[in-house]
């Protein structure tokens, strides 16, 4: 019997001003990307607590991507700089926690970059699919 195809669970945090609008633009232009990607809207990428990312992994996410405005374009002027530093720190610890660093990513997607959004998501899903299921950090108690 053949195994069912692996469908990763992917959480994408998108800032309201650039990346969420970029995702909307991808939709307007009907640019396909895998349905495994589910977007959570946050006001700014700097709203994303590293805890949210760990929580997602704990609850069984296979990949988490964080999208914000390009450096220098943040609606709140400096939010994405905080994001960049915080995530650099978090990502540097992931291997230690037993999670492949490649399961996370920070991307800058502007409101005008619908195509980049779709391409990024296609690429990220392919990367996560290749990595396979995230088993290490998953909290078994959360499994239904």
């Amino acid at each position: 019997m053949q195994m069912t195809e692996f469908k990763p669970k992917i959480v994408a945090f998108c800032c309201n001003w650039c990346s969420y609008a970029g995702a909307d633009l991808a939709g307007n232009n009907r640019l396909n990307y895998p349905a495994e990607v589910k977007i959570i809207r946050v006001p700014c990428s700097c709203r994303v607590n590293p805890m949210f990312i760990l929580r997602a992994f704990q609850r069984g996410a296979d990949g988490v991507i964080l999208c914000g405005c390009h450096p220098g374009d943040c609606h709140y002027t400096s939010g994405n700089y905080y994001t960049r530093r915080r995530m650099a720190l978090l990502f540097s610890m992931l291997n230690f926690l037993g999670i492949e660093k490649e399961r996370t990513r920070v991307e800058w997607v502007s409101a005008a970059e619908g195509a980049k959004f779709a391409a990024t998501m296609n690429d990220f899903v392919a990367q996560i699919t290749a990595l396979g299921e995230n088993k290490r950090l998953e909290d078994l108690r959360c499994k239904k």
């Binding site: 959480v11 946050v42 709203r47 607590n49 949210f52 997602a56 069984g60 996410a61 239904k144």
Partner: peptide, 19 residues
């Protein structure tokens, strides 16, 4: 915490998506 985008709310969304 941020009203309208509270940590508990965002984590609830994360949980719902990962369920």
């Amino acid at each position: 915490d941020l009203k309208g985008f509270a940590s508990s709310q965002i984590m609830a969304e994360v949980d719902a998506i990962c369920k």
